[in-house]
Design a protein around this nucleic acid. Structure first.
Lengths: 216, 216
DNA sequence: GCAAATTAATGATTTATTCAAG
DNA sequence: CTTGAATAAATCATTAATTTGC
């Protein structure tokens, strides 16, 4: 259950996992670089973690969710085929389309369901209430964003790296020393609404984090 | 042909393209982050370019090379099948294996062919002469490596980003302002042999850039 | 109970596919 | 039609669950 302290791969703590799953349920699928940054910083409070771990987690989780659904669907299809051995062409096609549509469900699930906690769209990561003004849920979530102090010299050091994310690049030296956690002073920064009030305006003022807008 | 100065996507200058192709011919397939860094810095001399462009270029070039070869092979196969309508199982399989092997050719082409210019292995990016002592070609190549000056404040700015590379991560803030080119002072740094002499020793001293060694 | 042996999950990489600018 | 950009699928590899024989 515990990770051997110096493992070759990241092994999420229960808290980290919980939060990630919450985010996923909340609709996050392919966080972009700054989102990853923020999530990483946030989760690093609960244990060692790097940006790539967050990235891969979402990547894998989405893919496996999809594949799970796909398997379920194909199984259903098999059952159906056993009942109605052969169908006219057109109906078959409709079925295909139906399934294809269902798979797209995973791209961003219907917001109306039960995602009480996280309310940001994946494009901006800014607080975003349920568009219809839903969710009075208060969360008190703070995001700790790591402000890199003057980092001169040596491009190298330990540059564990890999890139990927959504929407834009940001190669960025990962100078988090992979060490324990919460090592440096972090600038705390509110990204989530304490209450769901006065948020309509915020969307104009808080351009703190680059919002390339429409992720589609 | 000219890029409209503010185009939505990178458009390589002839020089950049030439160099990239040379590198590809030289054996580079999936440069890792620091390699990408270096290549980018190098190529930025000839025009606007970002790390992701380099990354994608190699990605695409490799993929399309492979697919081209694949197409050619399958076409040949079709022709053969027209001649010899059906074959005993075993020969068919041999053919398959043969093709599979040919596709692997693209992973890292035989070094003996004609790649006179670039001689570094993709793992370390350090100068590496032709192993059999070939290539007296002198190149005078310098790699300009951008040392980030103390970059305080604002994690954001314009964090265009994306991640990917080989071997390790390195999210890294892309603070290259996408602007003209060669804007800031660059630290010049020799990575390629001016002459092919006294290189055997260098392999021990120049651990400047992290070499995770064996890539598979 | 408790390791060794198997299997299942899942983190990490690579390859293929798709989208869209030009 | 070519190719830069982006995403998804397939694959590899390691860790955790679990089974099994003692």
């Amino acid at each position: 259950m515990m990770c051997p302290a110096s493992s070759s791969r990241w092994c999420p703590t229960p808290e980290q996992l919980m939060i990630l799953e919450e985010m996923y349920r909340g609709g996050i699928r392919t966080p972009n670089a700054s989102q990853i940054q923020q999530i990483t910083a946030h989760l690093s409070y609960y244990g060692k973690i790097e940006g790539k771990n967050v990235f891969y987690w979402f990547q894998n989780h989405k893919a496996r969710d999809r594949q799970k659904l796909r398997r379920k669907l194909s199984k259903e299809m098999q059952q159906q085929q056993q009942q109605q051995h052969q169908l006219p062409q057109i109906q078959q096609q409709n079925q295909q389309n139906h399934h294809h549509h269902l798979l797209h469900y995973l791209d961003s699930p219907p917001p109306s369901a039960l995602q009480p906690l996280y309310h940001y769209n994946s494009a901006t990561f800014l607080p975003q209430m349920g568009i219809e003004g839903a969710s009075p849920q208060r969360m008190n979530y703070m995001w700790k964003v790591d402000i890199p102090e003057s980092n001169d010299g040596m491009v190298e050091e330990k540059s564990k790296m890999r890139m990927y994310s959504r929407d834009n690049w940001m190669m960025m030296v990962d100078m988090c020393p992979t060490s324990p956690c919460c090592s440096r002073p972090l600038k705390t920064l509110q990204l989530f609404p304490i209450t769901a009030t006065n948020l309509k305006e915020e969307s104009t003022t808080s351009t703190q984090f680059s919002c390339p807008t429409t992720t589609t």
